[in-house]
């Protein structure tokens, strides 16, 4: 069996993490982090992760801040933002300069995420 794509999902809400696991465990090999700082640690720990999906609104560090920092450390990895907010100028800018590969809106469409990550 082909090895699954290794994904790091960062969300401060346990419920979101667990549902994400339910929805995608058949397709991705998922690691979790509770916030941006944890995310950076996990990235160090699991260097084989290729795709990172982060929530936008989180304590300590916003998703965008995390991605900006992580992207500078791991420019080859792909980062995705997931948020209940509509797209903002800040997010658009991040998309335009390729820091963020794609922006997903909550409630997410599983097929959309699946096809994006697996493509």
């Amino acid at each position: 069996m082909k090895e699954k794509v290794k994904v790091l999902y960062i969300d401060d809400e346990t419920l979101n993490r667990r549902i994400f696991e339910f929805n995608f465990r058949d397709y991705f090999d998922i690691r979790f982090a509770e916030d941006g700082i944890d995310g950076l640690d996990k990235l160090k720990e699991f260097s084989d992760v290729t795709h990172i999906i982060s929530d936008y609104r989180m304590p300590k560090m916003s998703g965008l801040e995390f991605i900006n920092e992580a992207k500078s450390l791991y420019p080859d990895k792909l980062f995705y933002l997931l948020s209940g907010f509509d797209i903002t100028a800040e997010i658009r800018e991040a998309i335009d300069n390729k820091t963020i590969s794609k922006y997903f809106q909550k409630p997410y469409n599983r097929e959309d995420i699946k096809s994006t990550i697996l493509s």
């Binding site: 549902i19 994400f20 339910f22 948020s83 907010f85 909550k106």
Partner: peptide, 23 residues
């Protein structure tokens, strides 16, 4: 925007759960 975010977040659980249940 605030309302949308506050609704979208729990909506995410429901939709995820719905997708999970359906699966």
């Amino acid at each position: 925007a605030g309302i949308a975010h506050e609704i979208n977040n729990p909506l995410n659980y429901i939709k995820g759960a719905y997708v999970g249940l359906n699966d």
